[in-house]
């Protein structure tokens, strides 16, 4: 299990380094995720230790968002001024985003399938 945790942290570190060196506007952990995926593809299987740690972390993903979320308290004044506009904007936009994604996914999927058939 420790091997797995070390592997995740090393991927993250390499990701952070790559971001620092190339100056790309992407967070290090995301690059780390791509690196781990490439490693798994080359390796052709997921080592048990990596799977154990990863599944443990992903099972409790929601908890990891709490500390950042509590940071909202710093902006309570601004939120009390604009809360309605913010909520409406988030609601409308989330609705539109989900509808667009589902519809486009289906449309392109259909076009793709029919293009593949003779």
């Amino acid at each position: 299990m420790l091997n797995g945790f070390l592997a995740l942290l090393l991927c993250q570190l390499l990701g952070e380094l790559l971001v620092l060196v190339t100056g790309m506007p992407v967070p290090g952990p995301v690059v780390g995720m791509v690196l781990l995926l490439l490693a798994l593809i080359v390796f052709k299987r997921t080592p048990d230790s990596v799977r154990l740690v990863s599944e443990g972390l992903l099972r409790h993903l929601a908890l990891l968002y709490v500390p950042a979320g509590v940071g909202l308290m710093v902006h309570l004044e601004m939120i009390s001024q604009y809360w309605l506009a913010i909520l409406v904007a988030l609601f409308v936009s989330t609705l539109i985003t989900m509808l667009v994604t589902v519809l486009v996914f289906r449309l392109v999927g259909k076009l793709n399938n029919s293009a593949g058939e003779p």
Partner: peptide, 20 residues
């Protein structure tokens, strides 16, 4: 709370496993 917050990094990397 930063000790929990810190785990967001490795958790993001861990997403590679279900992807694979």
């Amino acid at each position: 709370a930063q000790f929990i917050h810190f785990l967001l990094g490795p958790a993001t990397v861990a997403l590679a496993v279900p992807l694979f």
